[in-house]
């Protein structure tokens, strides 16, 4: 009886938590679509892909300096060009032509920059190989662990032992 009651409580707790998470995620998924006043996705994407050149090293979408000498004109230009219908890639390329690669907020996918993207996954693959190798190696019968060394014997005791051996 007690066990059944416990099961019921546990089930209801489980369902409550699971249901709560389900509702939360459903709510997030069903969040209203962008309203007319929202900054356009293209504008946000462009600002995310570019870095402010004032020295703050932040993305254009992040630099919060008021009337920043770099971010303010860059943002104005992006808005203007998007309104003209220029594609995001073209706008980004024009900034790269002006400032160089340092204006991008992430490495490109060509040349040496490509290594930035692939290296973590190369390390992950190598790590997997090492972990499997270690697991296989550890699965073999372990060698006898070396016992820790005993502390050195007092020299006086050593002398006495030598004397004792001589006597024998």
């Amino acid at each position: 009886m007690n066990s059944h009651a416990t099961d019921r409580r546990a089930h209801s707790a489980l369902s409550g938590l699971g249901g709560g998470l389900l509702l939360l995620c459903f709510w997030a998924a069903a969040a209203p679509a962008a309203t007319p006043g929202d900054i356009s996705r293209a504008y946000k994407e462009t600002c995310d892909r570019l870095v402010c050149q004032c020295g703050c090293n932040e993305q254009l979408s992040v630099c919060a300096m008021q009337n920043c000498s770099s971010a303010t004109p860059m943002r104005a230009e992006i808005r203007e060009r998007l309104q003209k219908g220029d594609p995001v890639d073209q706008i980004v390329d024009s900034f790269v032509a002006r400032y160089g690669k340092k204006v991008l907020s992430a490495p490109t996918t060509t040349g040496f920059d490509l290594s930035a993207w692939i290296m973590p996954f190369v390390i992950l693959c190598l790590g997997l190989v090492v972990v499997v190798w270690v697991a296989v190696r550890m699965a073999r019968p372990a060698a006898e662990a070396v016992q820790p060394e005993l502390p050195p014997v007092d020299p006086r005791v050593e002398e006495e032992l030598k004397e004792f051996e001589k006597e024998i």
């Binding site: 870095v51 690669k101 340092k102 991008l104 907020s105 992430a106 490495p107 930035a116 993207w117 973590p120």
Partner: peptide, 14 residues
């Protein structure tokens, strides 16, 4: 010879 920027798009994607 170019100090590029590695920002949130890289860290989020990786």
């Amino acid at each position: 010879g170019t100090k590029i920027t590695v920002g949130p798009p890289f860290f989020n994607n990786v």
